[in-house]
Simulated assay, not measured.
Amino acid sequence: MKKLIMLATSTLLLAACGQEVETETTESIVDGALKESYIIGLDETFAPMSFRDVEGDIVGFDVDFATEIGKLSGLRFEFQPIDWVMKETELNAGNIDLIWNGYTITEERKEKVAFSDAYLENSQIIVTLNDSDIQSNEDLAGQVVATQQASATLNAMEADETGIVEKFDGGEPILYPTFTDVFNDLESGRSDAIVVDEVLGRYIMKQKGSEKFNVLTDNFGDEEYGVGIRKEDTALQEAINEGLVEIKENGTYDTIYQKWFAK
C-alpha cells in the first residue's frame, strides 16, 4: 500500500468471537490516515460468507477474503457479530469500522455508507420445495413468501415493478431475522416459497440436500457485493480496493473462491 511501510513479522488476528487465528501478516507503521486494527461487523449465520463452524469459530468466504486483504495491507481485522438490522447504525456510530459480509451495493445504501469496489456477483433467487406447483414469478400470487428482514433481498422485492409482491398472501413477504429461519419456514411448510441471496441459498440447499428444493428461472434481480465503509474513511477504502486488485492479480482471490464455491 502507498501509505504503509511494511515490516515483516508474525502476528495474531484476534476475532471478536474469542478465537485467535494465526496469520502470516505484517505490522505497519501508518502515516496517521489508517489505524492498525479495524472491527468488521457481520451476520454470523450468513453461510458461506460468514458463519460459525462446528467448533464455534467464525469462518467463510468473507472471513478468508478480509484476512488476505489484511495480510497485504498490514491491518488487523476483528470479526464482530452484529444485529444485521442495525448494520449501518453500528457503522456510523463507530461501534464497527466495516460491514463486510455479503453486503449488497444499492443506491439506498450509498446514501448512508461508502463502498469498496464490487468483489462478487449475486442474484436474488426464488426457492420452493421440489414438489411445489410454483414454477414462475406469476405463480407467487396468493402464496406465502418469506425472506430476511432488513436484507438486500427485501429491498429487491420492494423495488420489483411487476406488482407480484402485492399479490402475495397478505400483500407482503413474511420476514425473519435470519435466512436460516427463512429456510426452516419453507421446510416446515409455513411458507410456499422463499427469496434468498443465491450464494447463501445454494450453499444451504447443498447442506440440506439439493434434491429437496427447486430454484425458479425467474428471480428478483442481479447485484454485486461490496465492503461498507464510513464515508470519511477514504484511506481505508483505498487500501481495501488496492488489496482487492492485488489478490485478484496474484491468484489468491481465485483460491478463496474455489474453496467456498467450486461445488
Rank of each mutant, 00 (worst) to 15 (best):
Val127Arg: 12
Asp233Leu: 00
Gly70Val: 05
Gly209Ile: 08
Ala15Tyr: 13
Thr104Ile: 09
Asp83Ser: 11
Ser37Asn: 04
Glu55Cys: 06
Met157Ile: 11
Asn241Glu: 02
Glu161Ser: 06
Gly228Asp: 13
Thr25Val: 14
Phe65Lys: 00
Lys208Asp: 06
Lys167Gly: 05
Pro173Lys: 15
Glu223Met: 13
Thr252Asn: 06
Phe115Cys: 02
Asp97Gln: 03
Gln80Asn: 13
Glu138Cys: 05
Thr89Arg: 13
Asp97Lys: 04
Ile174Glu: 12
Ser123Ala: 13
Met49Asn: 04
Thr252Met: 02
Thr26Ala: 15
Val245Ala: 02
Asp185Val: 13
Phe220Met: 07
Glu88Leu: 12
Cys17Asp: 14
Gln148Cys: 06
Glu211Tyr: 06
Gly18Arg: 07
Lys206Cys: 01
Gly142Ile: 12
Lys110Cys: 03
Ala141Val: 13
Phe79Ser: 02
Met86Ser: 11
Gly41Leu: 09
Leu34Asp: 11
Val215Glu: 07
Asn241Arg: 03
Lys3Phe: 08
Glu78Ile: 11
Gly102Asn: 00
Thr104Lys: 02
Asn219Ser: 15
Ser210Ala: 11
Leu14Met: 04
Gly226Val: 08
Arg52Trp: 08
Gln19Met: 03
Ala47Thr: 14
Glu68Ala: 05
Glu107Met: 00
Arg202Val: 13
Gln207Ala: 06
Lys71Ile: 00
Gly60Leu: 00
Val59Trp: 12
Arg76Ser: 15
Thr67Ser: 11
Pro81His: 13
Lys35Cys: 01
Ile105Leu: 10
Phe61Asn: 00
Asp31Ala: 05
Ile125Asn: 14
Asp222Glu: 09
Tyr119Trp: 09
Thr147Tyr: 09
Asp192Leu: 01
Gly32Asn: 10
Glu246Leu: 02
Ile164Cys: 00
Arg52Tyr: 13
Glu242Gln: 04
Phe168Cys: 12
Pro173Trp: 15
Leu140Lys: 15
Gly170Ala: 12
Gln149Val: 05
Ser73His: 09
Glu246Phe: 01
Ala114Phe: 02
Tyr38His: 04
Glu20Phe: 11
Lys212Glu: 11
Asn92Leu: 13
Val127Ala: 10
Val145Gln: 09
Glu36Val: 03
Val165Met: 11
Gln237Ile: 04
Glu138Trp: 06
Lys208Ser: 06
Gly56Leu: 01
Lys259Ile: 12
Ser123Gln: 14
Asn122His: 11
Ile39Met: 05
Gln258Thr: 06
Ala150Asp: 12
Met157Ser: 09
Thr23Gly: 12
Ser50Asn: 14
Leu4Asn: 01
Asp218Met: 11
Asn130Met: 10
Gly221Leu: 01
Thr45Leu: 06
Val113Ser: 04
Ala118Pro: 09
Thr255Tyr: 07
Gly243Ala: 03
Leu42Asp: 04
Gly221Ile: 03
Trp84Asn: 14
Asp43Ala: 14
Leu129Gly: 05
Tyr103Glu: 08
Tyr119Asn: 04
Asn95Val: 03
Leu200Ile: 12
Gly41Tyr: 08
Ile29Lys: 14
Leu42Ser: 03
Leu72Gln: 15
Ile194Glu: 01
Lys112Ser: 10
Tyr176Met: 09
Ile99His: 04
Asp169Ala: 12
Thr234Cys: 01
Leu72Trp: 15
Val196Gly: 00
Leu34Arg: 05
Glu121Ile: 03
